[in-house]
């Protein structure tokens, strides 16, 4: 499914996704939290065909409170598993807008990502797809829901995921 939308909309959505990728790679935590709507959620399902998050196992399912908790943890001076910390680098592409609400300007958009995580002499690769529900506000887009489906969803994981992919 793909929507017909203006070049301006496509560009604005792509810029938002690229900036989000940069923010999480560079650990700009205040900027990360500011990307989300007040009731926004970051969701990584535990299976590829999972339809709902509530009441089911998930790899990530976090609101702003839980995201802030995660940030407080990785910034804590005693967070020994952050010494050294992981370094992330990702590319976001294949940005396809699925729908644009004519009245509100809200967007549903899917995209692909490929990322490298480096930590402790070891490099891991993740690939997958994003699906963002973006809310149009006076101040630009905010994330209502970000769904992240990683290719290796069933693992096994060689280490946990300390921050968001």
């Amino acid at each position: 499914m793909a929507a017909i939308c203006s070049v301006e909309t496509q560009l604005a959505v792509e810029r938002f996704l690229y900036r989000q990728a940069e923010i999480v790679d560079d650990r700009e935590w205040d900027a990360w939290l500011a990307l989300f709507a007040e009731d926004g959620k970051y969701w990584m399902p535990a299976t590829a065909d999972q339809e709902v998050a509530d009441g089911q196992p998930n790899i990530f399912y976090e609101d702003l409170f839980l995201m802030e908790m995660r940030i407080k943890r990785v910034c804590h001076p005693y967070a020994h598993s952050q010494a050294p910390t992981q370094r992330l680098s990702r590319v976001v592409s294949n940005v396809i807008i699925e729908s644009e609400d004519g009245a509100t300007g809200d967007i549903v958009v899917r995209s692909k990502f490929h990322l490298v995580e480096y930590r402790l002499d070891d490099q891991r690769y993740f690939g997958g797809k994003y699906r963002h529900h973006l809310k149009q506000t006076d101040d630009g887009y905010r994330i209502q829901l970000q769904r992240v489906d990683i290719a290796n969803v069933e693992g096994p994981f060689g280490y946990v995921l300390q921050t968001w992919l």
Partner: peptide, 24 residues
Amino acid sequence: ERALAYYYHVNSPSTMVNADDLNN
């Protein structure tokens, strides 16, 4: 729901608890 919350926070691949255990 209580079991699920523990499963998420302590035992999921995004756990903030076992991140430190595994590092140890």
